[in-house]
Simulated assay, not measured.
Amino acid sequence: MKTAGGSDAAKRRAGERAAEDVADGFVVGLGTGSTTAYAIRALGRAVDDGLEIRGVPTSFQSRQLALEVGIELTDLDAVDGLDLAIDGADQVVDDADAAAHGALIKGGGAAHAREKLVDAAADRFVVVADPSKLTTRLERSVPVAVLPDAHTVVADRIRDLGGEPTLRDAGEKDGPVVTDNGNLVLDCAFGSIDDPDELATRLSAIPGVVEHGLFVGMADATYVGTDDGVETRHY
């Protein structure tokens, strides 16, 4: 069966492979999205079998799923650090010869601000993906979380950088998407992104930007689920 962005089987294999990296006593960052959900469910089964871990969720969605499968939760400010973070991506640069190899675009679920915080706090950050997320160059729109009062000013600055910002609308109600942290999201189209690191620096420097969806130099590995196994990319 196919889902948006790839097959369920490929997503499941990637998520379950990442869950195998979790050892007894770990504090684990629990990312957001359909592929990471398979990792969380696999960890729940391991907890049922006696594995003792604590999870730090990155969104309401991942928190609810973790509670459902019996994972003990904690907060980032209540631990000294995380042993591992598991998270998905909207795009992953898969080109070993490129300086941006392993760079990500995240934020399709509007949780990228907390995801970046949790992923950066982990000793090791692994990405779970299916082959549809791999690319030789980032080209999806970059989600940018902004303070509500700043969205028009930030949009103007993004246009100055060559981007085309669109305020993300909520699908089930009138008005824009509001993140778990109370921010709005601008989806910013830059076309093909030649230098993700430079763009990330420029976006971060805009007053009113809370966080953007470019994750550069953060991932340690990507587990790519396929129809018959899992491929690993190390960075």
Results as ranks from 00 to 15, higher is better:
Asp194His: 06
Pro196Trp: 02
Val177Met: 03
Val142Asp: 02
Arg124Thr: 13
Val153Gln: 15
Phe125His: 14
Arg157His: 10
Ala120Arg: 14
Ile158Ala: 08
Leu138Met: 06
Ala121Tyr: 11
Gly182Thr: 12
Thr166Pro: 08
Gly191Asp: 00
Val178Gln: 01
Asn181Tyr: 04
Leu199Ile: 00
Asp156Gln: 15
Ile158His: 07
Val185Glu: 05
Gly182Ala: 06
Gly182Met: 08
Arg140Leu: 11
Ser141Trp: 09
Ala170Ser: 14
Ala122Leu: 03
Gly175Glu: 14
Gly163Ser: 12
Arg159Glu: 14
Val153Leu: 14
Thr152Ala: 15
Asp149Gln: 13
Val185Trp: 12
Pro196Ile: 02
Gly191Asn: 00
Ala200Glu: 09
Thr166Ala: 13
Arg137Glu: 08
Gly175Tyr: 09
Ala200Gly: 11
Thr179Val: 06
Asp187Ser: 06
Leu184Gly: 07
Gly182Ser: 03
His151Leu: 08
Ser141Asp: 06
Ala129Thr: 07
Thr179Asn: 01
Arg137Phe: 01
Arg140Ser: 11
Val142Tyr: 01
Asp194Glu: 09
Asp174Phe: 05
Leu161Pro: 01
Ala170Gln: 12
Phe190Ile: 01
Ala155Cys: 11
Asp149Glu: 15
Pro148Ala: 08
Gly171Ala: 11
Ser141Leu: 08
Thr152Gln: 12
Leu134Glu: 00
Leu161His: 04
Pro131Thr: 10
Gly162Ala: 00
Glu139Arg: 14
Gly162Pro: 01
Leu161Phe: 09
Glu139Trp: 11
Asp187Tyr: 11
Val128Tyr: 03
Val127Tyr: 01
Val185Lys: 09
Lys173Gly: 04
Val146Pro: 07
Asp156Gly: 15
Leu134Cys: 06
Asp195Cys: 01
Arg124Phe: 12
Ala150Gln: 13
Ile193Thr: 01
Thr166Phe: 10
Leu186Cys: 10
His151Tyr: 12
Asp123Leu: 13
Val185Pro: 10
Glu139Phe: 07
Glu164Arg: 15
Val177Pro: 03
Val178Met: 02
Thr166Ile: 04
Leu199Val: 02
Asp197Pro: 03
Asp187Arg: 11
Pro143His: 09
Lys173Ala: 12
Asp174Glu: 08
Glu139Lys: 09
Asp187Glu: 12
Asp174Gly: 02
Asp195Tyr: 03
Leu186Val: 01
Val154Phe: 14
Val146Ala: 12
Leu167Tyr: 06
Asn181Lys: 07
